[in-house]
Amino acid sequence: ARLPRSAVLKKILDSVKDLVKETNWDCNEEGMSMQALDTGRIVLVEVMLREAAFESYACEVPMTLGIDMEPFGKVLRCAGGDEKVTIKASRNDQDHIELVFENEEKERMSAFELKLMDIDGEHMAVPDAEWGAEISMPSSEFKKIVMDLAEIGSDLTIAVSKLGVTFTAQGNNCKGSMVLQPSTAVDKKSEQVAISFTEPLEMTFAAPYMKMITKAAALSSTVTLSLDEACPICVRYEMEDNAGHIKYYLAPKED
């Protein structure tokens, strides 16, 4: 599997490493994907890197690669963001993978081996949901709102009504809320805020977890929040050019 830029892998690693220390990557002809729960079983993260994300991709037999994020991160730090990355996994020797970084300008090539782990893979089935509300907005804006409000309090409430979407945090000494309304005057789709809902709803989530979930803003200019009463929120980042997505499910806080 060859990626035109290592930056994509670096960003994916950054987006999951606070939640997941080790995970199985499933490789098949469609691409590479992973699903993992954090240790508290509060967040589920799913990553899909489709064949379209790669400059070249071949997977003759489906394989599962058990990756330890820490050494993987050390290896990836050796790659320049614009260097090409080739990942090689051999079906005859499933003990390790090879990673080759190529800098075409400098005619430099570096090669690494990463030992694979035998990870007991847990897999969760996510039922298809009919969401009560969906919000799409610029990912940078969502990140700023979450980062700012997480400083105010550890509970982040998201309320959707005809007023728009309201994000509220309450701490011991202060309380703050931010309201976004659907944007009509913005031309660029990536800068628009769109809100749809059937009934008004209000749900509360742990702000520190939501902060971790905003790391993926680096992968996509937009984010979609899907909510339904008393269900986990789904926060979805679609990468450009059908390259894939990263999705997080975060369990709500309840009475």
Binding site: G40, I42, M124, D155, P232, Y249, A251, P252, E254
Partner: peptide
């Protein structure tokens, strides 16, 4: 007082 839910309450293991 709100308590943190876990995903197993909503999803199931396969």
């Amino acid at each position: 007082m709100l308590v943190q839910g876990v995903l197993a309450e909503f999803f199931y293991y396969t």
